[in-house]
Design a protein around this nucleic acid. Structure first.
Lengths: 231, 231
DNA sequence: TACCATATTATGGCCTACCAAGATTATGCA
DNA sequence: TGCATAATCTTGGTAGGCCATAATATGGTA
């Protein structure tokens, strides 16, 4: 009478998120959406009150965010929201370039048409989101595009790394996609990746992925320099 | 009468490691050196007793190790020492290849003789450690070789990523270096990286770094497959 | 008034003790 | 023997307290 006897098709979605995970998501979200600004102190007891959880939880959450790079711990001062400078942002984009390029190359070498089809699907979603001015959708579908790139060749660890780094440049991402022409340029560059993959052109896919990240990085640097060609 | 008035030359070494950091190091070390084996349960209260610290600390440490990938948390069961399978090990080596290749290329393009000199220094240390059969030394100096590679071009984030991934394959590393001929092959391959860097040959440095990691990966796979050509 | 020494406060690091709920293992009875 | 119930183990989570240190306020004196 257990699940195994009947398969797991209707297995209930485990609502079993622990309180800690809930709190983690809340705080991370609060940092990402700017409720907590870079440099803000994150006082344990205040967070307890705001989240309605105990210090134990808050401390674990802060440690976790620290290892994600979203929170920095000053000795004898306590945790603050980490600030990202030009150079670190550049490094993160560079790493993404290397890993996404790698994944793109592997996808191309796989010679499996289903990969390009799946990517096209995400690309279409991105175009639609741009058309609807749904910027949250653009971000989500862009992530999903890259997730597909990695998961189609079973590179979940690299995807984890990229994902981890990406949260740290989240605010930059949401700015770059609002940039002049990015609604056209972005998808065009991504389409080049898909084309190369469909052709089985590993080197081309690698290059196209690198270029896409490089241009995002360039925009991010411009944004960080203050002269924001935005909106 | 403060330090600033007299410079910081005699500044006391800050012993200010928190208990949590100490405990973290202990447990990580215990996992790396095999005191805790993959699959072992890590019972909070047992760890409290063994470490002599409170649950607060132990919980934070376990969470931290979880985010490092050294510990896995089974729902409704609790934390165990993570086990690494073939495929994940392969993925980690692959990522290292991409990032170390990238760093090697950047070093070459820097055209700064000091870089190759520093790397040669580490290489010499590695050779000496091999000669003295000091395997811990080999590992340490190999790390330092790669750290130099990254830090010389100010890529501390990529270095962090590599470092994080490396702890997870630590036991494999200590096995690969004991492999037949690795005492010769390893340094030779690394010397090729240094040579390419000294020549300013970015592509060559990239390739040499990739090959070095690839051969380590191949050995690791052989080790994992049981047929260990060891010692 | 200027300055220094002494509270006070804020905060992180750390601890003990406790409870609830789910999983596992013993136990005891039919 | 087989099954239901109870005891136990362990994590998730809470409450509250202690101590050390750093920053800040306070107050008294030259």
């Amino acid at each position: 009478m257990n699940d195994d006897a009947h398969g797991t098709a209707i297995r209930v979605e485990r609502p079993a998120k622990t309180l800690r995970e809930l709190a983690l998501d809340k705080v991370r979200e609060a940092i990402l959406n700017g409720y907590f600004r870079p440099g803000d102190r994150l006082v344990e007891r205040d967070l307890c009150a705001q989240l309605g959880v105990s210090r134990t939880i808050v401390r674990e959450v802060l440690r976790h965010l620290e290892s994600e790079g979203l929170v920095a711990n000053l000795p004898n001062k306590g945790p603050i929201v980490a600030q990202l400078n030009h150079d670190e942002a550049k490094q993160i984009y560079e790493i993404r370039g290397a890993l996404e390029g790698m994944a793109a190359r592997l996808c191309a070498e796989q010679r499996n048409p289903a990969i390009a089809d799946a990517l096209d699907k995400s690309l279409e979603d991105i175009r639609n989101s741009y058309r609807d001015k749904d910027m949250a959708g653009v971000l989500a579908h862009t992530s999903s595009f890259y997730q597909t790139l990695f998961s189609m060749v079973d590179r979940h660890i690299a995807w984890g790394v990229v994902n981890l780094l990406t949260v740290r440049i989240n605010h930059l991402r949401s700015m770059t996609i609002k940039t002049q022409n990015r609604d056209v340029q972005g998808p065009v560059q991504m389409a080049r990746i898909v084309d190369a993959i469909r052709r089985g052109d590993g080197e081309g896919a690698f290059q196209a992925a690198m270029e896409h990240v490089a241009s995002a990085s360039a925009i991010a640097q411009a944004v960080l320099s203050g002269r924001q060609p935005i909106d």
